[in-house]
């Protein structure tokens, strides 16, 4: 059984329909990347899956449960967490406090979990009690991911995690994503840095104009010359 399955998703913003029936699937433990030109609806797809946008038709299933139309705070309790592209941290709170907010709905003692997350992002340990607003872009991105990991999710939704970061930072972030995946968390991410992302993805979907265009394993997509020409900048 697939961990996440979205079938025929039609969604958009208000009157504007962006997705005209998109389907994606994530198996447990996989890294799935969604690429495509600007305006293809990649971010819209993630938001529709996570319940931030209403799904006009189609179905989203998570671990066998139909979560179509569920609100984000219900979905989060099932084990799916979302890291938005922008405004994904609490800037006036410290790193530690951001993680505590990530664990807000946990009723158990999550101090051990905080340490596990710091283990994933060792660079942040020194900045533990620093206000996140004062951190660099890359560090903030790590805090954003760490916050989302506090609930021990089975699936992490990442919206352009490398956006606006320097190349060295991009490398670092992707390395962290691989590490998170090695720890057992499936990842579905939208990426502009398509080449870099596909290198370590188990599966990739190409979206354009709100529809599925191609899908194949990450390395296969990279080898595909036509895909390379059309979507990966030659």
């Amino acid at each position: 059984m697939a961990l996440l399955e979205a079938q025929g998703i039609v969604s958009g913003y208000g009157e504007m329909e962006i997705l005209h029936g998109v389907s994606v699937k994530v198996e447990p433990g996989q890294i799935v990347t969604i690429i495509g030109p600007n305006g293809a609806g990649k971010s819209t797809l993630l938001k529709a899956i996570f319940g931030l946008l209403s799904v006009k038709s189609g179905r989203v299933t998570f671990n066998g449960t139909d979560i179509t139309g569920w609100s984000p705070d219900r979905i989060v309790r099932l084990g799916m967490c979302f890291v938005p592209q922008t405004e994904n941290v609490f800037p006036s709170l410290t790193v530690q406090e951001n993680f505590e907010m990530g664990a807000f709905i946990r009723t158990d003692d999550y101090r051990a979990r905080i340490e596990e997350v710091f283990a994933l992002f060792p660079d942040l340990r020194a900045k533990r009690h620093v206000k996140v607003g004062a951190l660099s872009g890359g560090q903030r991105q790590m805090v954003a991911m760490g916050r989302a990991l506090m609930l021990d999710p089975k699936l992490l939704l990442l919206d352009e995690p490398s956006a606006g970061l320097a190349p060295k930072m991009v490398e670092l972030i992707f390395e962290r994503v691989r590490e998170i995946n090695r720890a057992g968390v499936a990842v579905i991410m939208v990426e502009q840095n398509a080449r870099e992302a596909l290198k370590f993805s188990d599966w990739g979907y190409v979206l354009a104009g709100g529809e599925n265009r191609f899908e194949d394993s990450g390395p296969a997509l990279l080898r595909n010359e036509e895909i390379g020409r059309l979507y990966l900048g030659g």
Binding site: D73, V76, P84, E87, F90, P91, L93, M101, F104, R147
Partner: peptide, 13 residues
């Protein structure tokens, strides 16, 4: 947290 980012706060439950 809510003062900082109400949407993220809501998502955090």
């Amino acid at each position: 947290a809510t003062a900082d980012n109400p949407d993220l706060a809501r998502i955090s439950g």
